[in-house]
Amino acid sequence: MSRIENQFTVQFWGVRGSIPSPGSHTVRYGGNTPCVEMQVGGKRLIFDGGTGLHVLGQSLLPQMPIEGHIFFTHSHWDHMQGFPFFVPGFVKGNHFYIYGAIAPDGSTIEQRLNDQMLHPNFPVPLQIMQANLNFHDIKPGQAIHINDVTIETASLNHPGEAVGYRVNWHGGAAVYITDTEHFPDRLDENVLWLSRNADILIYDSTYTDEEYHSPSSPKIGWGHSTWQEAVKLAKAANVKTLVIYHHDPAHNDDFLDCVGEQAAKEFPGAIMAREGMRLQVPASVSLSESFPISKFSV
């Protein structure tokens, strides 16, 4: 087994929510919308296709041909707007397996990615992409097996629905939970289950409690959570590292510095998501192990 096949890493390519926020006020944390890459036992897993996916794609060009698995939480613009600009998807010889739940209106992830690339919204259709694209409809609660990697899924509390993911590999676990809104009187059982004893929990912390409950402009019902709720969850789930994620576009670097300081005081394992940040998940791997075949025949 090579060194890469013996690793579980998490890299952040887009950490901002709602809308891209480039500019001098977001330099330290980044302004691209959600995209997180995990390299797990030699497999490349990509979570969400915000504008950060374009940046990831540029980094992959010297490595082609590429094989990867792309998991969408849902199809709000900030989570899929980078897909039409994902250059490796246009290159013949690359292979991508794409996963997403069926939307409440019955549309598949393939249909929704196709629709955003139709006129008058985009100049070229999905069918012009020359990479081999294999689409998989998933049901929240379903486990996905890719060789020796297991991805668990659960429904999140978000308008239009969304899916959370937990990646398990040889005793290590990283969890990707965005977009979701906490419940006022209890922890979300689905979120708590996904987060259990995780090495890394990436959690939607768009707002502060003060913003969420603002008398003049409350964010209740908007589908997002707060960093204070993230801390509650991390403590209850026995998480090692909490990553504050999906930063509000109005939160500049100085504001996020303050959030990071407060969160770390409440939970020493809390850190702020930054574009380019790379984390290592500990895992116990035997170089002599053989791996089972994926049920998706990947």
Rank of each mutant, 00 (worst) to 15 (best):
E5M: 11
Q7S: 07
T9W: 04
Q11H: 13
V15I: 05
V15N: 02
G17S: 05
G17R: 01
I19Q: 05
P20M: 10
S21E: 12
H25G: 07
V27K: 11
R28P: 04
G30A: 06
G31R: 02
P34N: 09
V36G: 00
E37V: 09
V40E: 00
R44K: 04
R44H: 08
F47A: 03
D48A: 04
G49S: 07
G49P: 00
G50R: 00
H54V: 10
L56A: 07
S59T: 13
S59I: 07
L60S: 03
L60R: 01
Q63M: 08
M64S: 04
P65A: 07
E67C: 04
E67V: 06
G68P: 02
G68T: 01
H69R: 01
F72Y: 08
H74P: 01
S75F: 09
H79S: 02
H79C: 03
F83C: 05
P84Y: 06
F90N: 03
F90E: 09
N94P: 04
Y97P: 01
I98R: 02
I98W: 06
G100Q: 07
I102N: 02
I102Q: 05
P104N: 07
G106W: 09
I109A: 06
L113N: 03
N114G: 07
Q116T: 14
L118R: 11
V124C: 07
P125I: 09
Q127L: 14
Q127P: 05
Q127C: 08
I128A: 15
N132Y: 03
N134W: 11
D137M: 07
I138T: 06
I138F: 01
I138G: 00
K139C: 00
K139T: 01
N147T: 14
V149A: 02
I151A: 02
I151H: 01
E161A: 12
Y165I: 05
Y165P: 02
V167A: 06
N168K: 11
N168V: 11
W169T: 05
H170F: 15
G172A: 13
G172W: 04
G172K: 03
V175K: 00
I177R: 01
T178M: 10
E181G: 02
H182S: 08
F183E: 08
P184T: 15
D185G: 06
R186F: 09
E189G: 03
V191M: 00
L192I: 03
W193R: 01
R196G: 04
L201E: 03
S205V: 03
T206C: 06
Y207W: 14
D209W: 15
E211S: 12
Y212K: 10
H213N: 12
H213Q: 12
P215A: 12
P218R: 13
I220S: 08
G221H: 07
G221D: 15
W222I: 11
W222R: 12
G223T: 06
H224S: 05
S225W: 05
S225G: 03
T226C: 06
E229M: 06
K232Y: 06
K232F: 11
L233N: 01
A234E: 04
A234M: 06
A237W: 03
T241S: 03
H246A: 04
D248S: 14
P249W: 07
F255L: 12
D257E: 15
C258R: 14
C258I: 14
A264G: 13
E266A: 09
P268E: 15
G269L: 11
G269R: 14
I271F: 14
I271K: 08
A273C: 14
A273I: 10
R274P: 11
L279W: 13
P282N: 13
E289N: 12
P292A: 12
S294D: 11
S294E: 15
V298Y: 10
